[in-house]
Simulated assay, not measured.
Amino acid sequence: MKLRLQLFEFEDLPWFPAVVRAGMMDYLRFMISALNTYQPIVPLLRDALRQTGQPPLLLELCAGAGGGTEGVLRSLRESGLPQAQVTLTDLYPQPAAWQLLAARTPGLFFEPTAVDALAVPAHLAGFRTVFSAFHHFPPLQAEALLADAVRQQVGIGVFEGAGKSWLEILLAWTVLPVAQLLITPFIRPFRLSRLLLTYMLPLIPLFTIWDGTVSILRMYPPEQLLALARRADPTGRFRWQAGKVRHTWGPQVTYLIGVPDTTA
């Protein structure tokens, strides 16, 4: 599917209730972690980190509740980068969820204050990653996010846990809502509000269906990701690659990776 529609997601809206946003982010984190959604990109990310010649420090932008991060970090540390670290950041921080991850995951840290991915503070260093969130940015902002990495000469990886297909939209309307109802009692940290807003007043499932559908429609396919990268890096200071990698059990991950070209 090459169609891209710039519709709105509720979680992007400043007035959207934080308690509902947190419930949606917790569900997303649980599912991405349980399904090991981003494991297929670990070799790509490991190679990109090595190409930079810098310490293996990751700065995750738009981290949400940190879905998949600890699995990716653990795999990096077990496959040749034992000193790998990641710092989670977000415009809407989720410290309760992040504290849980940091407590059980060596090398995982977080920035408790709000961080705008389009204006990353200078003291937050590292190879930038964006998991499941790049589609939130319309083209001009997406280009600006990439251009800032180019200006700062820091590598960047953009990863979306979907291949962008009508089948995935169908799953968002059928299978995933049922899964959400089944797994919600097991999501940690425990929140009574999450139970109430899932079963008594099902705002979390309803908004998740909408935002999940819009996420797929807003995703950039690989050719559009490369076009954004070329506009963000008109002088070719980075080496860029984009594509899709398939998980062993079927789903795909769409990616864009840029690394400073030391020979340029």
Rank of each mutant, 00 (worst) to 15 (best):
L73G: 03
Y92G: 01
G66T: 11
T69A: 09
E78D: 15
R77I: 14
T89R: 01
R74K: 14
G66F: 02
S75N: 14
E70S: 15
S79W: 04
T87Q: 13
G66V: 11
A97V: 06
R77Y: 09
T89D: 03
P95C: 09
G66Q: 09
L73I: 12
L88K: 02
R74F: 05
T87Y: 12
P95N: 05
Y92N: 05
S75A: 15
T69C: 04
L100E: 09
R74M: 10
E70Y: 03
L81E: 13
A97L: 06
Q94I: 04
C62E: 04
G71Y: 02
A96T: 06
E78Q: 15
L81P: 13
A102T: 14
A103M: 06
V86C: 13
G64M: 06
G71A: 04
V86D: 00
V72K: 07
C62K: 00
L88M: 09
R77G: 10
Q83M: 15
G66E: 05
Q85E: 15
P95I: 11
G66I: 09
A97I: 07
P95F: 00
Q83G: 08
L76Y: 07
Q94D: 05
L91P: 01
L81G: 10
V72A: 08
C62R: 00
L100S: 09
A63T: 08
L100M: 13
Q83T: 14
S79R: 14
L101V: 11
G66M: 12
A96C: 00
T89Q: 02
L76I: 13
A103F: 03
A65W: 01
Q83A: 15
Q99H: 04
C62H: 00
T87L: 15
L88Y: 02
R74C: 10
A102M: 12
V86R: 01
A63N: 03
L91S: 08
Q83H: 13
P95S: 08
S79N: 15
A65E: 00
W98A: 02
D90F: 02
A63V: 05
L73S: 05
L88G: 02
R77H: 10
A96W: 02
A84W: 05
D90M: 07
G71H: 10
P93H: 03
A63Y: 01
